[in-house]
Design a protein around this nucleic acid. Structure first.
Lengths: 355, 355
DNA sequence: CTGAAAGCGCTTACAG
DNA sequence: CTGAAAGCGCTTACAG
């Protein structure tokens, strides 16, 4: 034991207390609530109240503090606020993609609505694979969101369980299930497939085909489509699956392959309007008249498609309404109000041009 | 003074110390790092290292802690982590809108890239008005993001100043300026206007018109367009401004108004492909042949437009590249690497069908 | 209507 | 390679 100073011996009556080492951390990075409080001559708590419950602060105090806030340019630190209050004011939106997609308008309205209510949106893009969904969920939950919007209902059981265990409101969207994790705003992809099949059957279609992206929701539409056709005695349905994201080019390439499978092809149900436009282009090249010789139905009812390709039929889903309703579901629950578990927003088949 | 117990009198040698009142706060809401530490038989610091610098932890310790984490389903609280480390791992993306818009693919790629690097994206939709930009910025900065992506360069001076004062990397996108706040990835809307004017001039256009959304970037394109035409002696340029967001319907309604202003109209520069599609539809109804009697140029080069309306010319900007480059700018700076201040990604005029 | 103390769940900055 | 103490900037839960 080197450096053994004889302190105790020199001052036998004073028990040796280790001098408290003052640890220093980097120093202040910016303005703190205490800075505002000092300038305004109030306690930090009062500044906190000015932001979180201004109605409980005396008018003059309020005004004085606000002026200091303004002058200093103080912005509260919500990392600290959230940690302390367990209210992150954050909502996560987990979406496969927002690029040229139907989901973008859902996210748009959802975000606007949440923002108006004082929440901010954490955007989490899941892609179309589940591979990293666990990691994505970890990342999302690490922010302690107060609610989560999910796209689709097909998630690994472990995910569903984890989500329901965190005890925050969850809305699943863009799909339908009998067993939602919590709340649901969507529609049945299977029923869309059924409806498109019926639409084709009314038109006396005999050799229908299908071009679809290879994802859960698209496959549900396919199943509804095939099963309804099977009921009507049509069991041969040409099928081409393409990897998401779907595109015009994929639709264009798919039509000839469909015709290889079914030379008498007279109807195609496409997984998206982009695929439908591609199929339409391919049909033109092959000299097939749409819709008289070949009916083509898309999915999405994109604005441009309505205008530029009146030969196409499509399925319209109100993505805006989904976003708005999903936001309301979460907000109601956060406010303690009860909410319907399931909202079916339905869909419409939009036929643009008869004949 | 009721309840005045004679404590001091009864124990005269013990100075009366106020019994420290144990305040209780709601109780634990979930798992804490201490719970994992206890189960794994290590200190909380070691658990922290397992997440933040696993290479500094002994392999067996690492494994043991990870198993406990897995078993318990522990997810670190980044509100606490961010507060403590001043590293929020959050990046804000401030965009006018992501609904049916060119920005959505920029946000998509930006978000993917940031996500891969361990950051999460806070989505802030500014709309097209500046009115609430101050409030939006407050909301964004309250999360202490480590970087910000901005759309456009036209921001109130107060905003620009506040942003440059926070001292985090900022990328402005989708526009060009000589005085960026920090970094910039974009192109010149003014030059696009010039280029479209030149395109029309090459085609011997005599009575050009313009349909544009009434926002800063669209107006910059207009200015370039008009000034280049003026240089060529064309000073009469019919003009219709529409409120954002632009749509097919607005384009359709605008063309007749343009023709009222300029009965011999033979070219239109539209602020977006949607407007161009609308104008094309209106031209058809009026019996005008596009492009032989009327040239129409859009902006955006949307995939569907290429395919469905080959009569239209358009201006292509690579939104994906903007998103990727913007992400790299921020990541390089966060890694301490220097970066070009300004990246001009340019644009192309896409002429789909000659004649 | 206002404030002093304690605590939210982590990480920094040391020390060993 | 590991850990004990202090602190990040707020809010809760009281008390007055």
């Amino acid at each position: 034991m080197p450096n053994h100073k004889p302190t105790a011996a020199a001052r036998p009556d004073v028990p040796e207390a280790a001098a408290p080492v003052k640890r220093v951390r980097g120093g202040p990075k910016g303005l703190r609530i205490a800075d505002v409080a000092a300038q305004a001559g109030v306690a930090p708590m009062t500044v906190s109240r000015v932001f979180n419950s201004p109605e409980t602060v005396a008018p003059e105090t309020l005004e004085r503090v606000r002026q200091v806030v303004q002058k200093l340019g103080y912005v509260p630190n919500r990392l600290a606020g959230g940690l302390s209050s367990s209210r992150s004011r954050l909502i996560a939106a987990i979406v496969p993609t927002i690029a040229h997609s139907l989901f973008s308008e859902t996210v748009q309205v959802f975000s606007e609505t949440m923002s108006r209510a004082g929440y901010q949106v954490l955007l989490a893009l899941s892609g179309y694979s589940d591979s990293s969904e666990e990691a994505l969920l970890d990342a999302v939950l690490s922010r302690r969101p107060e609610g989560v919007l999910l796209t689709g209902v097909a998630h690994a059981d472990s995910l569903r369980e984890r989500l329901s265990n965190v005890g925050i409101p969850i809305v699943e969207t863009w799909d339908m299930t009998a067993t939602p994790i919590d709340m649901l705003v969507g529609f049945s992809h299977y029923q869309i497939g059924v409806a498109v099949a019926e639409h084709f059957l009314q038109r006396k279609v005999r050799a229908p085909g299908l071009v679809s992206a290879n994802d859960d929701r698209a496959l549900a539409r396919r199943d509804g489509f095939r099963e309804r056709l099977a009921q009507a005695g049509i069991r041969e349905v040409a099928e081409v699956l393409v990897p998401p994201p779907s595109s015009v080019a994929l639709g264009k390439a798919a039509l000839p392959r469909l015709i290889e499978q079914a030379p008498k092809l007279d109807a195609v149900f496409c997984g998206s309007d982009l695929l439908a436009i591609g199929a339409l282009g391919a049909a033109r090249k092959l000299g097939l008249k749409v819709p008289s010789q070949l009916s083509i139905c898309g999915f999405g009812d994109l604005e441009f498609a309505t205008e530029t390709t009146p030969q196409l039929t499509t399925v319209r889903v109100d993505g805006t309404r989904i976003g708005l309703t999903a936001a309301r579901c979460l907000l109601d629950r956060l406010a303690g109000t009860d909410r319907d578990k399931v909202t079916d927003v339905g869909f419409h088949i939009v036929e643009r041009e008869t004949t």
